[in-house]
Design a protein around this nucleic acid. Structure first.
Lengths: 203, 203
DNA sequence: GTCTATACCCCGATAGAC
DNA sequence: GTCTATCGGGGTATAGAC
């Protein structure tokens, strides 16, 4: 009756990495799929292939500290995906389509398991674990900044750019959630078209 | 060091309700704030003011069955909020503003704790607990249907209405998440304006 | 239906040998 | 740094009296 037994897909990262890095990556992936509360340190040590004591060696103050580090890692990972999608398209409307495409691909390739890596953790800890909430807030700001930067060279007024960056990130978040739950890329495909259309009304 | 001790705001529902209803409502509220994994049945019984055995009396097969019922309750609750916001405005663009306003009010009044009641649970259980995932999927479809219905009497083509309903719900989800994490109604305010603008491009 | 008590397990975290 | 072993507590779930 333990839900953990439903865990299907392996998570073990490249064994050539250092121990600390393997722990962080494994934690990040598990929190992406199961959230903060649903991820046990024992499971992390098992899936990372390291001893439990090693986890506490690198993260002496425990789970919370490790979670913050995992969110920071996820921040960089997701930023890389965004940057890649945005860099390939000069036109901002095309860039939106590219973003939703790449997110859909990642989702499908992981059998709809790997959506935004921090959303589950963000919701579980909002208002209850300030250290994690702060790391989450910084990630969202970081990602929004990437979109802002991309929209800035398009002739759109600065105020509109800042507002658009909010809605771009938030709509991507919502559409990815819907795609994950419904196991379909349709929500993302629609979101891409609508974001492109919305941006074009400002040009 | 127990995160549960950070639990600040009380949750206890009206004591005039039947026991079963109190259990479901308490579960729904706790899962909204802490997710599925973060919510213990012992905490539910404590906050609902009922014996642990009563929980198992009404939900003999345990936590999962109770969670499905809680998602169904949250479905109705959130649908009520949406319906209320949509019913007050004939113009669909105005209705978007009304939706984001009412969501922002609920969030602020709960000290930014009560966002979408099922998102955290949805993400934790996606791909791992099919029974819950199915209840979540139905809720999203239900809410999307309410938006579809509202947009249908506006002269917008049926295909566009169906697509718009997706993005309306998904953008509301994403903006509410961002508002909750950043403790600000700004993401929702922006989302309202952008959804109104997007809809107006179809008229 | 609700009470108390408890079985059994996994949780986060720690200790001390090596 | 990693090993094994373990502590105290809380997790889900159950039993049986009332």
């Amino acid at each position: 009756m333990n839900d953990k037994t439903r865990q299907a897909q392996a998570v073990r990262p490249d064994s050539s990495l250092g121990t600390r890095e393997r722990i962080v990556r494994t934690t990040s992936r598990l929190m992406q799929r199961q959230g903060y509360e649903g991820t046990a340190i024992k499971q992390i040590s098992r899936e990372a292939g390291v001893a439990l004591s090693s986890v506490y060696h690198f993260f002496p103050s425990g789970k919370q500290e490790l979670a913050v580090e995992a969110v920071r890692h996820a921040d960089q990972e997701f930023a890389g995906i965004l940057r890649e999608a945005l860099a390939g398209e000069d036109d901002p409307a095309d860039a939106m389509i590219a973003c939703t495409r790449i997110l859909a691909t990642h989702l499908r390739d992981s059998d709809w398991l790997d959506g935004c890596p921090i959303t589950a953790t963000a919701l579980e800890t909002a208002g209850r674990v300030p250290e994690i909430q702060q790391a989450v807030t910084r990630s969202f700001e970081h990602w929004r900044g990437l979109v802002t930067e991309h929209l800035r060279h398009t002739g759109i007024a600065e105020n509109d750019v800042l507002d658009l960056a909010h809605t771009v990130i938030n709509t991507l978040e919502g559409a990815e959630l819907a795609a994950q739950v419904s196991r379909s890329d349709k929500p993302l495909e629609i979101a891409g078209r609508h974001l492109a259309r919305l941006i074009n009304t400002y040009r």
